[in-house]
Design a protein around this nucleic acid. Structure first.
Lengths: 180, 180
DNA sequence: AGACTTGTGTAGCGGTCGCTACAGAATGAA
DNA sequence: TTCATTCTGTAGCGACCGCTACACAAGTCT
């Protein structure tokens, strides 16, 4: 089911088509998940797990700049590409903003950010500077991903590399002893 | 109608409720706009216009860092808050990704980015560096806005200020004569 | 005056939605 | 065996969806 949603998006997730895709009926989905919202949330959570695992499996790059660019390339391949798209849909449509989904989504999101932070540290970001660099990289990658639908690959590659430079600069600030 | 959509989101834009909100019938909406998709696109375009006008009306701040933070504050107040939300919904759900909407959306998005670039230049970003700084700031603000639903205001304020520092660092690179 | 384009209301079509009532099959406990 | 719990298929409910057919009013042009 998660595969099907990753392919077709979460906004148009309706019981009957997804049930047919997995060889069962809408009746069964409601029986096992209770309600459609619960089903959506289960899919979102599983999507988060897969994405986190994909980031954890990423080999460390040499340096922050290379790491950010490698992260972006990973975001454009499966399973992260579809996973991020589903997560963005859920966040943009406000599905994640209302309880009880909000708590679960926040926990999953934090683990996701944690995976990115761990990766950036592996790439050489000093630990005490990692949270701030991570916040920048994480939200920026969200934005760049949204630009995928309109911008050209060239423009995006340029933009992401600028992000990498900026992230590296931010990481260097503490090493140079400068206050923020 | 745009007001109503800005308030209720664009994902659940259905003819009858929005028609009732503006004192007409779904019959009339279809008559004037042709189809629902055309109506959605008209609303999105008008939303973009309003947002661009709001950015153009922003007073220049002293320095890149202050400018980015001021921009973020503007993004959290009307009309930019609702406008960005509608735009993000349209982008995340893939509505902007399919022709013929894609061309129009791309044009509107470029004008939006252009307004941000002009503002950043007013805040002191060197002109030759403005496109790269703008790409970073624009996409990052997208991402931070998505985090609004889960993160706390404190965390976000911290993250945006880090973005401001990074943008300033990126803007300074060319002044220092360093290659990117 | 008569034809015609433009705008508006009423009613309803075919379809999909989430969800449920009901009956039956399978399975394990007594 | 008998009973109870767990699972699954069929049918359908009421609501809403985008959209259209049709009748009719108000101009506008010839």
């Amino acid at each position: 089911m998660t595969d099907h949603v990753l392919e077709h998006g979460v906004v148009g997730l309706t019981l009957r088509p997804v049930a047919a895709a997995v060889g069962t009926s809408d009746r069964m989905l409601v029986y096992h998940f209770g309600t459609r919202d619960d089903l959506v949330m289960a899919v979102v959570l599983r999507t988060e797990e897969r994405s986190i695992a994909a980031i954890d499996a990423l080999p460390a790059a040499s340096g922050v700049r290379a790491g950010v660019n490698a992260l972006w390339r990973a975001y454009q391949t499966e399973p992260l590409a579809s996973g991020l798209r589903v997560y963005l849909q859920a966040a943009a449509t406000g599905l994640l903003g209302q309880e009880p989904h909000r708590s679960g989504a926040r926990a999953g999101g934090e683990r996701w950010v944690g995976a990115i932070r761990a990766y950036l540290v592996r790439c050489g970001v000093p630990a005490e500077r990692a949270p701030r660099v991570t916040a920048l990289v994480d939200s920026s990658l969200y934005g760049f991903h949204l630009d995928l639908v309109t911008d050209t690959p060239d423009e995006l590659a340029q933009g992401v590399d600028d992000l990498a430079v900026a992230a590296a600069a931010l990481a260097d600030l503490s090493l140079a002893g400068r206050a923020d």
